[in-house]
């Protein structure tokens, strides 16, 4: 009697163990189409990256279920983040983020923090470059900064994407570092900003490489320095005998500012370890494709790849930095809006 009871218990225990261990060994896989949220408009940097990934996944058959890109750009991306926040426990939703992961909640006060989501992986970091019109005499960042200091306060115009977001944060940082004052003019998209620079409607921009490379190749704009600790890695010639690698760091030009933008993946709250693991593996496969490498090269991306705790740590440090930067700049949302 006792014996049978023991075996029964053992069987139950074994069953339980199997029940628990099944998802652990047989890895999780999506059973429905996966929604890939883009918290920005169609045609922007994040959207391009998401659709490239979608194309790569489709072309190489990396997923059994379709990956569906959905733009939720309302409220500077707040719409997309809130959508993910409220889909807790739905593993069929992932989101690609940019700096608005930090800036949007800080600037608008919408109830969202990146900790509401489950971090998956950092895919790449986007560089920022200081650009001026090629017709202007400034050949180096130093010359340009001297000119800005010499000009009456606020008469030099800096064009950028969005308000109280990465471009304006960098602009404020440049102002702080040099003691000068720009007039910052926000536009809708990076491409538009680059063209405004070509048309001489603004004096300088901090476009991402991919946004301004076409104008550089056409001899319309000139890169002065990159806001990174070391020069970019790509040494293929782009324009007038120069490559991305030849652009000096801003620090070497006496402008001690570093800023890189996150291009990372998060998923909905309360995701299990297996589910995160599945997406990490997926993006590892994506990164290995030649299409992805071409895409990285065309945008001169910094290809740092982080997952798990490293990624979370990076994001946390970055959040603190943004909070400090935005507080300094007076960009935090006032209560009551």
């Amino acid at each position: 009697m006792k014996h049978t009871a023991q075996t029964a218990l053992g069987a139950i225990a074994a069953l339980c163990a199997v029940g628990i261990s099944v998802p652990a060994t047989a890895a999780w896989e999506p059973v429905r189409p996966v929604e890939f949220i883009v918290p920005a408009g169609t045609g922007g940097g994040a959207d391009q990256m998401a659709r490239t990934i979608q194309g790569i996944v489709t072309k190489h058959n990396l997923m059994k279920q379709p990956l569906v890109v959905i733009n939720k750009s309302g409220g500077a991306g707040g719409e997309g983040f809130l959508d993910l926040k409220t889909s807790g426990g739905n593993p069929h939703k992932i989101i690609i983020t940019l700096s608005n992961l930090f800036t949007t909640p800080l600037a608008t006060g919408i109830p969202f923090n990146w900790k509401d989501l489950t971090p998956v992986a950092m895919l790449a970091l986007d560089e920022f470059v200081l650009w001026v019109n090629a017709d202007k005499p400034y050949k180096t960042a130093k010359e340009y900064i001297e000119a800005v200091k010499a000009a009456p306060s606020g008469s030099m115009k800096m064009g950028g994407t969005g308000s109280k977001q990465e471009d304006q944060i960098i602009t404020v940082a440049v102002e702080k570092a040099t003691g000068s004052k720009f007039t910052y003019i926000p536009y809708k998209g990076g491409g538009e900003v680059a063209v405004q620079l070509v048309g001489n409607h603004v004096d300088s921009t901090v476009n991402n490489p991919i946004e301004a490379v076409a104008q550089w190749r056409g001899g319309k704009v000139r890169p002065l320095c990159v806001f990174d600790a070391q020069p970019m890695a790509y040494d293929e010639q782009i324009a007038d005998g120069k490559s991305w690698k030849d652009i000096p760091t801003c620090k070497s030009q006496g402008l001690d500012i570093e800023y890189l933008m996150l291009r990372g993946i998060f998923m909905s709250p309360r995701a299990t370890k297996d589910q995160v693991e599945y997406y990490v593996e997926l993006f590892k496969k994506v990164r290995a494709t030649p299409e992805w490498q071409d895409f990285m090269k065309s945008g001169a991306f910094n290809t740092t790849f982080l997952t798990g705790a490293d990624y979370a740590k990076w994001v946390e440090a970055e959040e603190k930095r943004h909070e400090a930067l935005m507080k300094d700049a007076g960009f935090l949302a006032s209560a009551g809006n």
Partner: peptide, 16 residues
């Protein structure tokens, strides 16, 4: 919605 110049929300009265 979002005012694109100041990056601030307006007329939303807290409704997401």
């Amino acid at each position: 919605g979002l005012d694109s110049i100041t990056g601030q929300l307006r007329l939303t009265f807290g409704f997401t």
